[in-house]
């Protein structure tokens, strides 16, 4: 039962719609999923894997397979980012799990460069609905591709951290990493 050979043949035939694999990070084991269009999902350790994969099967395609080789590029870029050696991701984002205002808010968030931050109110305005501050917050809270779509760069007016799907300590760590604070190493 050579599953690696099976994955290779399935990929050669274009039969893998969603490939996923684990990626290590300074704050635990992440699961990353890609389609031919780009990275479609990044899940934190706390998220239940079965649920994450079932959602991909329901909303993208049931042809979901664990193929670590297909995630090599994403894994390398994330490693470099966590080590502070990478400021932007080359792997494109597949936004197909986002719709309506959430899509606009996430696209606007995607454009925030490394080391910069916005407030939820500013993000809502850039996404075209200045009054949709709460919806902008929800779009960030349920961001399917955190870190790459940098929702950690969106804060409360006045500088409060706001929330974060992976836990506030992770948001703090990412912001410290990007501001060059040595505390980024403190987590471990």
């Amino acid at each position: 039962m050579n599953t690696a050979e099976f994955a290779r043949r399935a990929a050669a035939e274009g039969l893998i719609d969603v490939a996923y694999a684990g990626v290590d990070s300074p704050f635990g084991h992440l699961t990353a999923a890609v389609t031919d269009a780009g990275i479609v999902r990044l899940a934190f350790e706390g998220e239940e894997l079965d649920g994450v994969l079932q959602e991909l099967a329901d909303r993208v395609s049931p042809r979901v397979l664990e193929v670590p080789a297909k995630l090599d590029g994403v894994r390398r870029e994330l490693d470099e980012y966590f080590e502070g050696r990478r400021h932007a991701f080359q792997t494109p984002v597949d936004f197909q799990l986002s719709h309506g205002f959430h899509l606009k808010a996430r696209e606007a968030c995607y454009a925030i460069p490394f080391g910069k931050v916005l407030t939820y109110a500013e993000l809502a305005a850039i996404a075209g609905s200045p009054r949709a501050v709460r919806a902008a917050g929800q779009a960030m809270a349920r961001n399917p591709v955190p870190i790459v779509v940098p929702c950690h760069r969106v804060l409360r007016t006045g500088g409060g951290l706001g929330g974060y799907g992976g836990g506030l300590h992770v948001k703090r760590w990412l912001l410290d990493l990007e501001s060059g604070e040595p505390s980024a190493q403190r987590l471990f």
Binding site: M1, T3, L53, L56, V64
Partner: peptide, 19 residues
């Protein structure tokens, strides 16, 4: 129509099919 991720079939039934 909810189908489980194919990876689950592979893991749950692949060995039976091979046997």
């Amino acid at each position: 129509m909810k189908l489980p991720p194919f990876q689950m079939l592979l893991e749950e039934h692949g060995p039976d099919v091979h046997r």
